[in-house]
Simulated assay, not measured.
Amino acid sequence: MDTPTNTILTVLLGEYGFTHRSLADEVNQVSGRIFGRPGAATDRDVRRWISGTVRWPTGRYLLALAEIFDRPPEAMGFVPRGRTSRLPAPPSSVRPGQEEPVKRRAFLTASTATTLTLALRLEDTPVRGRLTMAHADRVAATIGRLDAHFTAIGGGALLTAATTYIDRLRNTVDGCTYGPRVEQALHRTLSDLYSSAGRAAYDAGDNATSRLHHTAALRSGILAKDGRVQARAWSGECHIGRRGVAVSVSVGTAFRRICV
C-alpha cells in the first residue's frame, strides 16, 4: 500500500526557503540547542518525512521541527503513531523562553492558513465548465481533509481557509453547469463547509460570525435535502447558545426547529 506524500511539509519547505539539506542542518542545530548535542538528521531523513515513509519522526526531530515551523506535528502533516500525538517533553534543563527571539520571529512570518490552503490545493476546484459527481466527490474529500485539521491548527487559521474555499465554491455553483444530483451534492458540501467555518469562528471567539455561517449551513442543507447536514447546522446553532426559534427558511415549504 502506497504511503501518502506529506504535501503540507513540502509547502512549508517552499515557504521558508529550505532545501532538504538546509532543513536537516537547521533541525540538527535546533536539536543540539534543545538536547545539548547536535542531531544527526540528513537530507535523506527529510526526503523520508516528505514521502510519507516516516509519518512521525523521532522526538528529538519533532521538537526541533515544531520550533522551526512554530506549529504542532499534525499541522506539519505528520500522523501520530497509536493514540497519542503529544510532543515529548524537552530536557528539564531547557526552560521556556530560552529560544533565540530573532530567529523565532523570522520563522513566524509564514501563514498557517496560507500553508493549509496551498497544501489542500483548494484552487483546483473548477469554476467553469460541466461538473460531474466525480468533481463533487473530490470537493467533499477536500472539505473532509480541511475539517481534519481543526484540532491541529485551531479556529483562526481554519476559518480563513474555510472562508477562502467558501468563496471558491460559490463561484463554482454560479459559474458551472451540472445536473440535479451534482447540484444536491454541491449544496451538501457547502453546508458542511459552512458548518466547519461556523465551528472555527466559535473556536476563535467570534460568535456573531459563527451564527452567520451556521445559518448559511442550514440554508444549504435544506437545498441539499439532506437531514445529516441540516442536523449538523442545527447542532452548531444550539451549541453557541441560540435559544427559541433559530431560523425559519422557506424553500418550497417552511422549515422550523427549536433549540433546547
Score class of each variant (00 low, 15 high):
123 E>H: 15
242 R>S: 08
166 I>N: 03
206 D>N: 06
66 A>R: 07
71 R>N: 07
180 P>N: 01
178 Y>W: 06
85 S>R: 12
163 T>Y: 01
157 A>T: 08
21 R>V: 05
218 L>R: 06
13 L>Y: 14
31 S>Y: 03
148 A>I: 12
83 R>A: 11
66 A>S: 14
81 R>H: 15
242 R>Y: 08
174 D>F: 11
133 M>Q: 13
169 L>G: 03
190 L>R: 03
36 G>Q: 07
32 G>N: 08
235 S>Q: 15
76 M>I: 10
26 E>P: 00
106 A>N: 13
203 D>Y: 04
176 C>L: 01
48 R>Q: 09
225 K>R: 15
66 A>K: 06
89 A>C: 02
207 N>S: 13
251 V>F: 14
149 H>S: 08
217 A>T: 06
84 T>W: 12
194 Y>Q: 12
245 V>N: 11
218 L>V: 10
6 N>R: 08
68 I>C: 02
19 T>E: 06
52 G>W: 05
141 A>N: 13
196 S>H: 02
251 V>C: 13
257 R>N: 12
221 G>P: 02
143 I>R: 00
23 L>H: 01
146 L>F: 09
164 T>E: 03
55 R>E: 08
197 A>W: 00
259 C>T: 02
218 L>P: 01
256 R>S: 14
213 H>N: 13
183 E>K: 09
227 G>Q: 11
75 A>M: 07
92 S>Y: 00
31 S>G: 13
96 P>N: 11
186 L>G: 01
253 T>S: 15
248 S>T: 12
5 T>K: 15
118 L>K: 11
33 R>C: 07
44 R>S: 10
10 T>R: 12
28 N>G: 10
247 V>C: 10
186 L>I: 08
117 T>K: 03
221 G>V: 03
191 S>F: 00
192 D>G: 15
231 A>R: 04
136 A>P: 05
55 R>G: 04
97 G>W: 01
89 A>M: 02
194 Y>L: 15
139 V>D: 00
110 A>V: 13
115 T>D: 00
212 L>A: 15
234 W>L: 14
185 A>S: 14
199 R>A: 14
227 G>T: 11
253 T>D: 15
232 R>K: 15
12 L>M: 12
51 S>Y: 09
6 N>A: 15
137 D>S: 11
132 T>W: 08
186 L>D: 01
194 Y>D: 10
41 A>Q: 04
166 I>C: 04
215 T>C: 12
170 R>A: 04
145 R>M: 09
226 D>I: 02
188 R>A: 11
197 A>T: 05
165 Y>K: 07
224 A>T: 01
229 V>L: 03
249 V>R: 03
195 S>N: 09
118 L>N: 10
80 P>M: 11
186 L>V: 07
250 S>E: 14
201 A>R: 01
58 T>P: 09
174 D>L: 14
153 I>T: 07
121 R>I: 09
103 K>C: 05
253 T>N: 12
102 V>D: 08
190 L>M: 14
133 M>S: 13
228 R>A: 14
